[in-house]
């Protein structure tokens, strides 16, 4: 593909000149500068697209802890299967490579672009430009790429160089090519047959009457369906809020979040009273057992929506 890119450009020039003679079909409307400005959010490695604004490492620390740490860990170490953001230097050519912002990402601009377009996970495009600068600066600081007094701006951010950038190269496949041998192509005495790791495959879909016992495979049996709980109106309304804003952590138990349906994890919390649960959910909470960002990091939720979601979680976890 890329080996012939120059040729491709020549073909493009031809195609375009052909298009000019054919003339456009006149379909669609002009995209105005104002329309484009609202949607044109992309940032490039050369800094193209970065807005005015600034944020320091110090500004980023509090924002990161409130909006990012519940999934990514206080030091970028990652919770559960959420992405690890920091560490991993020197591991990429080992048997346990850890690909983080510092060890792997080739461009700092990607950090700004991605945080701005997609984070925090439950509330994308909710951060101000200054907040994105600050959180980006703090993640770079967690990776020892900038000093603690770094202030990210349009100018300073575009100057940041990432250590792993030189280690990326353009696709050079096909790198492996078999031959179409038909007879005596391998020596079976040299075969080592490696079987499947047992017990990691969901096998609930194996046909019961196939003559093969599903448990032959040692996989997870489908669990019995949870007992249906009759929900209050508030809890019923809260289920949609939960699905949108809370389940990312409360489904799997990320960042110490009590899992919905895990009565043992909830009983002491419920005993503190609904008022205390509401307050922690709305204002955020940080304690020995975990971190709860204010409104789960989604500040567009009203207090009542959060309370409904709490009702849903509590009633589903008794």
């Amino acid at each position: 593909m890329f080996k012939s890119l120059n040729l491709g450009v020549a073909a493009i020039a031809l195609a375009m000149s052909g298009a000019v003679s054919a003339g456009p079909l006149g379909i669609g409307s002009t995209a105005t500068a104002e329309m484009i400005a609202g949607w044109d959010i992309d940032i490039r490695p050369d800094g193209t697209g970065l807005p005015e604004g600034q944020g320091s490492v110090a500004d980023g620390e509090g924002l990161y802890e409130a909006k990012c740490a519940s999934c990514h860990g206080l030091f970028g170490e990652g919770a559960g299967r959420w992405p690890v953001l920091a560490g991993g230097e020197g591991t990429l050519d080992t048997l346990h490579p850890e690909k983080t912002v510092g060890s792997y990402w080739p461009y700092a601009s990607t950090l700004w672009d991605y945080i701005h377009r997609a984070m925090p996970y439950p509330a994308p495009q909710s951060l101000t430009d200054d907040e994105v600068y600050a959180i980006s600066a703090y993640v770079l600081y967690l990776n020892d790429i900038v000093d603690e007094d770094f202030v990210a701006t349009k100018e300073s951010f575009a100057q940041v160089k990432m250590p792993n950038e030189p280690n990326f190269y353009i696709d050079n496949r096909p790198d492996v090519q078999n031959t179409r041998c038909m007879e005596d192509c391998a020596d079976p005495s040299e075969f080592t047959i490696v079987a499947t790791v047992n017990g990691v495959t969901p096998t609930g879909h194996f046909k019961e009457d196939s003559g093969v016992a599903a448990n032959h495979y040692g996989g997870d049996e489908p669990k019995a369906a949870a007992v249906e709980v009759a929900l209050s109106d508030a809890a019923t309304a809260g289920q949609a809020v939960y699905d949108k804003a809370c389940q990312a952590c409360h489904n799997m138990g990320i960042a110490g979040a009590p899992k919905v349906g895990d009565a043992g994890a909830w009983v002491d919390r419920i005993a503190t009273g609904m008022e205390s649960l509401h307050s922690n959910a709305i204002n955020g909470y940080q304690g020995p057992n975990g971190v709860m960002p204010a409104k789960g990091g989604n500040m567009s939720l009203s207090d009542d929506e959060v309370k409904n979601a709490v009702a849903y979680m509590v009633e589903s976890s008794r």
Binding site: M1, R44, L92, P97, W105, P106, Y107, D113, F168, D171
Partner: peptide, 22 residues
């Protein structure tokens, strides 16, 4: 543009620690 899904993800890490992109 080198966005997240073509740098952090969807790039192929090779045994020498370098990575293929695109």
């Amino acid at each position: 543009w080198h966005h997240r899904e073509e740098t952090s993800k969807y790039t192929d890490l090779m045994p020498d620690g370098r990575a293929r992109r695109f």
